[in-house]
Amino acid sequence: MIDKQSIFGRVSKITFLSICLIVTIFPLYWIVITSLKAPGAIYELPLKYWPSEISFDNYIGLFTKSDFGRYMVNSLIVATVASTVATLISLLSAYVLARFQFAGRGAVMAAFLLTQMIPGFIALGPLYMMMSNFDLVDSKTGLILVYIAICIPFCTIMLRGFFENVPDALEEAAMIDGCSRLSALFRVLVPVMMPGIAASFIFNFVNCWNELFLSVTLMNSDENKTIPTALAGFISSFNIDWGSMSAAAVLTVVPTLAIFAFASKFIVQGLTAGAVKG
């Protein structure tokens, strides 16, 4: 009886997990297949689930016809710098919000939460004018600054949860030893919270890496474009270049997938630490 049940449980578990995996992975598979078809073969019927002839034309075209290599480097710079700085800044603000009670604390939290509710489009026009006045249009620094600001609220909320799970005796002890509050924070608390910080960082990185609307608005020249803008560029006025787009998509997803493969345990661990307090 017990045996039967567990067999049933196992079967249903395996079935469910397999279906989830197939459904999740299939679009990735399909985009890879599309990217490996020769440009004309995309429109061949019946559809081929494995290209009769593997062609790297789409990939070669990306680097010869467009500056995709540079876009990737740009995205990497922008996303890395923005998410690093945003995580550091959020670490400080999250610490304050988690540890201390002060007038206006609720207001700060509410102000941060509110940013999540603002549809970005309301701010695009004024933001462009402001950046233009600062001479920060079409500049990586400008985009980085905006991305930092966008990452901070949620990152702070997330990190606050992690801080609340770490006893404050830790930094107290360090401060009695003569550390300043800042060095206590970084020497004692950060190492303990590393999984949580990593999770926040990855969250920021993925968001910056994928951001489209701001990048399209603020970047002009080929020199400064990031990947999402380049992707949108494959829709030209009379053609959607599915082949190039698929190839670009594959290349775009690879770095983030690599991070996940490397850090998926980290992410769950990190979130576990912060989850309960939410």
């Binding site: 999740t24 992975i25 990735l28 993925v206 890496w209 994928n210 951001e211 489209l212 999402p228 992707l231 949108a232 998509a249 775009t252 997803v253 983030t256 997938l257 991070i259 996940f260 998926s264 992410i267």
Partner: peptide
């Protein structure tokens, strides 16, 4: 985790 890595536009 893969879908989470892809941008909404993509």
């Amino acid at each position: 985790f893969f879908p989470w890595a892809v941008s909404g536009f993509l």
